[in-house]
């Protein structure tokens, strides 16, 4: 029998599809019976989605221009070889 603490422990492996079927089944049975853990897993899942949806802040154009001129230099240099 999995305890509530175990569910919290296994939440990432469960959401990432890394649990073997027996473990997964016991977890699902626990979730059926336990509203606290059901809520935890739902909200934990939302947090993982939030993390995955993270967008990097915009990069300033000076930095981007520097990257581009370094690339262009390499392309030019190579083509004169």
């Amino acid at each position: 029998m999995l305890r509530c603490r175990d569910i919290t422990l296994l939440a990432s492996d469960y959401l990432d599809g890394r649990l073997r079927w027996q473990k997964r089944l016991s977890l699902l049975v626990h979730l059926l019976m336990c509203p606290h853990c059901r809520r935890f897993v739902t909200q934990f899942k939302a947090v993982v989605r939030v993390i995955r949806g993270f967008e990097p802040p915009p990069t300033d154009s000076d930095t981007l221009n520097r990257f581009e001129s370094a690339i262009n230099k390499t392309i030019k240099h190579d083509s004169t070889k």
Partner: peptide, 23 residues
Amino acid sequence: FNEGGSWIQPTRPWGSESADDLL
């Protein structure tokens, strides 16, 4: 969690759980 591994202080509902709403 208590020593038996049960919630003492379970997480409370957040109202909306969708990632879009959170973000």
